[in-house]
Design a protein around this nucleic acid. Structure first.
Lengths: 202, 202
DNA sequence: GTCTATATCGGGATAGAC
DNA sequence: GTCTATCCCGATATAGAC
């Protein structure tokens, strides 16, 4: 693996990531990926023998990128409100850096669920462990009682949806003003954090 | 337009709707749509001269189907909490009947924003009107003050995301137990309603 | 209106030179 | 490792019979 080899590989993966996230697996064209990477189709196939293999690799990377220091936050020994606040801030931060990933994941997972779900398993995601953690935190203090699954999904919804739905929401509610929507998302961490914590107060 | 004509047309549109929602515009195959409608490819082109035209029609219908009696609820003259409760119940009901529509809309809108957004404009959606309504309701009573846009998006997030993300969430949090997830979604209307109303209490 | 058969073309994949 | 040229299949679209 020479120097140029890894460089090209990186360029390919980054280009492919962008194109796949824009167009989805089916919508993406190998030609477009090659152009975006500044190479040609043949070289693409030299590195990744098929579009399918390339896609799977990109999908894998997206998920690993996206299950970041978040797990740590959930396991720190702090009160629930603080934990939620940290989680929401960190999650929104990562989301803004990778705005297309959630939509990408949802769409592709609907297209081919079982095969792609394996990638999650490989990534070592253990939801029951996480849920237990949330459940314990909920019991500790004097919060309104709540199913931890609903809480978890509420938080994820509030963070992910406005980012994933941006092309629609920005046009519908912000006159397609990108700056305004950017500002909206920036201030949203605080809004969501307050919203969730208020909702839990008894 | 003979009897058979409208029958076939309906069959085509319903079949196309299902396939496009499953696979997206690029992923869908005219053959698959024809099979699902119980006809052959040529007849598809007889009714809709191109895949693109067929897709646009399905997209149009999806949007009209999906912006239902919801507008009425928002304009009824009732307190905000009650209005939110009604809205959430109605929206979740429609969602459960058309679980793939929102993500379909969002995904395709990301693929080709400007052209497809025209369909929204045609449908006569007026968000500023809706926002004004929410804003007024917020001022009326002694709720915690809140940006109506954030509130609106929070409600939509909490309703849509768990339905749209089902293929992933069900596998990750419910051991891919469809029944369990069904029950989860059924009880969710009450959970979301409480959650939002609590969050607004000062 | 509905079918079978076929034209046409785009795009994934490969061969082979350098 | 990287390129040009080419193969080949699958999918959209059309022609034309019934």
């Amino acid at each position: 693996m020479a120097d140029q080899s890894t460089n090209t590989q990186t360029k390919i993966l980054e280009a492919a990531s962008r194109v796949f996230q824009r167009k989805g697996m089916e919508g993406a064209r190998m030609q477009e990926i090659a152009d975006e990477a500044g190479i040609n189709k043949a070289l693409l196939h030299y590195y990744y023998r098929s579009k399918d293999k390339l896609f799977l690799e990109v999908f894998r990377l997206a998920i690993h990128d996206f299950i970041p220091g978040i797990r740590d936050i959930l396991f720190r020994d702090v009160p629930l409100t603080q934990k939620l606040d940290h989680f929401i801030r960190e999650y929104m931060r990562v989301l803004l850096e990778n705005p297309f990933v959630p939509m990408f994941i949802i769409h592709e997972l609907q297209r081919d669920p079982d095969r792609l779900f394996q990638v999650f398993v490989e990534a070592g995601i253990d939801p029951s462990e996480i849920l237990q953690q949330v459940e314990r935190s909920l019991k500790d203090n004097d919060h309104r009682s709540m199913d931890p699954k609903h809480l978890m999904i509420n938080v994820l919804s509030l963070c992910i949806f406005p980012v994933a739905g941006r092309p629609l929401l920005q046009r519908i509610m912000f006159d397609n003003d990108g700056r305004a929507y950017e500002a909206f998302l920036e201030e949203r961490y605080q809004v969501v954090s307050n919203f969730v914590i208020n909702a839990l107060q008894s």
